[in-house]
Simulated scan of single mutants.
Amino acid sequence: MANVTLKANLPSETESSLRFPTYPVAGQAGTSFKPEHLAAISALSGSQGFFEIHAENYMGAGGPPHRALERVRRDHPISLHGVCMSLGGPQPLDKDHLKRFKSLIDRYEPALVSEHLAWSTHVDTYLNDLLPLPYTPATLAHVCDHIDEMQNAIGRPILLENPSTYVLFAESSISETDFIREISKRTGCGLLLDINNVFVSASNHGFSALEYLSDFPLAKVGEIHLAGHAEQEDDEGELLLIDSHDGPVADAVWQLYEIVINSCGPIPTLIEWDSNIPDWPVLRAEALAAQAILDRHVSDRETSHALG
């Protein structure tokens, strides 16, 4: 696999070349953008953090979705999160999908761009799911090739998100953390650490979430996701957690988040809430809880430096 030289990221470009203002995301918490919240967001003054959009919801040329997004983007940074690139899939990346993805980057100049370590397509069928893959040398090379292709096509590095998993593959010969570490090393991509995914997978497979995080390449993390999960039972009546994004962040996930922030610093953090969507104040309160942790870390570090 050849090394690639990526186009400079947007912050290095001149302000005059940008369609929208440049806003910082460092140390900020944000939320998923839902059009039904637009009026409430617009009624508030000042920063509301950053907003994440799913790329596939905005691949049409225009209409109300784009008008709503343009209003939000004028005053806030956004993160662009892909869910259908199928980086782990066996077939070549969909070049038309890549073009549409790049057009969104050019149009909205997102501060952060991310995709999943998963597969979601088969031939010409797009599955409404993020499916796991075996961690083998062959799969590793295949995923890296796809990430190289995507990054070259869009002209910037992406952040790769760790999955939530419900099954394991007998043929896997590489740990998930080593697999992700090697992907970042080979491709130069950053990482999106979804802490709820870590907690869900750890509970489902019986490993320690803390040990997973201690082995995760945290220095490569450019964004964090937090979300709610649901409790179900598997066929044997055992507890099964589902990464449902349909409720508040669990206390155990908040505890893991504080540990990560204390270790890594104030990484931009996104609250995902994609079904059973509450009123804006409820969703905003989740983001403010994350913001309080980020701000407390900054304050504690400044106090430590002052005392030192």
Rank of each mutant, 00 (worst) to 15 (best):
M1H: 14
P11L: 01
E13H: 11
L18M: 10
R19T: 10
F20D: 01
A26W: 09
G27M: 01
K34V: 07
L38A: 07
G49K: 06
F50T: 02
A55V: 01
N57R: 05
A61K: 13
R71E: 15
R74N: 10
S79A: 10
V83Y: 02
S86A: 09
D94W: 10
K95Y: 11
D96K: 13
H97F: 15
A111D: 09
A111Y: 08
W119Y: 15
H122R: 15
Y126Q: 14
T136N: 08
P137E: 03
P137V: 03
A141E: 13
V143Y: 07
I147S: 01
M150H: 09
N152I: 11
A153L: 00
G155C: 10
Y166F: 12
V167R: 07
L168Q: 15
L168M: 12
I174R: 09
D178F: 10
F179W: 09
N197V: 00
V200A: 02
V200D: 05
S208T: 02
E211D: 12
Y212A: 00
S214Q: 08
S214V: 05
V221I: 08
L226C: 10
L241Q: 06
G247Q: 06
V260A: 03
I261D: 00
N262C: 07
S263I: 09
L270Y: 03
E272A: 00
D274V: 05
P278H: 00
L288M: 15
Q291H: 04
I293D: 05
D295I: 06
V298R: 03
D300N: 13
